[in-house]
Design a protein around this nucleic acid. Structure first.
Lengths: 213, 213
DNA sequence: ATCGAATGTGTACGTTGTACACATAATGAG
DNA sequence: CTCATTATGTGTACAACGTACACATTCGAT
């Protein structure tokens, strides 16, 4: 019975039905529990209820699985950003653009604090500029975290909050500041800071970026 | 023969003489070649010419070895910063303070580009605020990278370039921006950028920090 | 109905971290 | 100097991991 798609562990059918997706799901959970190093191929297959080698029908090797998990985690980051952006009121279009820009940073950092393992995995190795815009890493809006940042900056220029001549490469500056704080929070020296201090630092880093661009 | 201290691999004596230091050295080389994950206990012992278990007389486990390697790598970062700071002329004390502050960022990022594996290892896990000021991680001046940054900021306040009321927590803001760029360079999406663009981004990030504090 | 392609299993090997028992060298007390 | 103690290195062993190879089962097209 239950020969259909999406068999759970403990299935009776020989075929799984959707093993690739199931393995990625298990991998995302492992990433959540312990970061990229915890994404262990054998453990993923175990949780899905399949033999270790079954994974090789869907992924060339462990790294390929990790890459897929990484993409999935980046999509989660995108969703976190979108969620923060969704809260800004569309009253004033200038102030709105400013707040939507800030929401990229706060959403990014909120996710880093809420799901450190997945965040670390999202940006662990193997992502170059091409893959930073790949569809597998997009959120509900269809944009990757990097694209959401780029769009927010374009809007800043459009409403006149950022001079066009300063625009080039600003995504990398903004990203650096926010990503760096996330790293220092997660396994850097700021790990043990009380949450209120962390929240304050988030605000101040985004302030710095807004002022420093 | 050669029963003294500091036996090399291929030694004839039963005792090694300075195994702890030798293992850290091998670990630092491994870190240089492949980052924190390449710091493999058995490989370190192999390179030193000793049986795997000999390491356990000097380190509780692999993590303890990695921690020591990490400290050593942070000391290398400190030295890189000190080297950049040493190049600023002491003519104008105000301009000098400003340049010494910038040198913290440029030295940090230069090291990240020159020795990505060691840089990654230096800031991989297990360092909290106490250990960020531990002596094992200091450079020639006796200061850790974090302490060098703190001192540079204090100087900025002393010469009047940074208002005292803005001083608190600025080390974390500056560190975030610079550390984030380093991470994006090393295994983030900026990995494949041509070197000239990277150099430009370094300047612009330090500009942003200087302006945004 | 049958054959090939897709997908899962079983067995096996090399590597890693590490526990436990043992061997040997340095050191200090008599 | 002798000898016991302590520090340090070795040998064997085991579980877990990634993954190669051969085999089994099922799906789909003819």
């Amino acid at each position: 019975m239950t020969t259909g798609i999406g068999n759970s562990p403990g299935r009776t059918s020989y075929r799984h039905g959707d093993l690739r997706r199931a393995l990625i799901g298990a991998g995302v959970t492992l990433a959540q529990e312990g970061g990229p190093n915890a994404v262990v191929l054998r453990e993923a297959t175990r949780r899905v209820g399949v033999s270790p080698n079954a994974a090789y029908r869907h992924f060339a090797d462990r790294q390929a699985l990790l890459d897929a998990v990484c993409s999935h985690c980046q999509a989660l980051v995108a969703r976190a950003i979108e969620a923060d952006q969704a809260t800004v009121p569309p009253t004033d279009s200038i102030e709105s653009a400013r707040l939507r820009f800030r929401a990229v940073g706060t959403g990014y950092l909120r996710f880093a604090l809420e799901e450190p393992g997945q965040f670390q995995t999202a940006f662990s190795a193997s992502s170059d500029m091409e893959s930073a815009t790949s569809a597998a890493r997009a959120g509900d809006s269809g944009f990757t975290p990097f694209q959401l940042l780029t769009l927010a900056l374009d809007d800043l220029v459009a409403v006149g909050l950022l001079p066009a001549e300063r625009r080039p490469a600003t995504e990398f500056l903004a990203w650096s500041a926010v990503h760096g704080l996330a790293e220092l929070f997660i396994d850097g020296p700021l790990r043990a800071l009380p949450d209120s201090v962390k929240q304050d630092l988030i605000t101040r880093v985004v302030d710095m970026v807004e002022q420093g661009l």
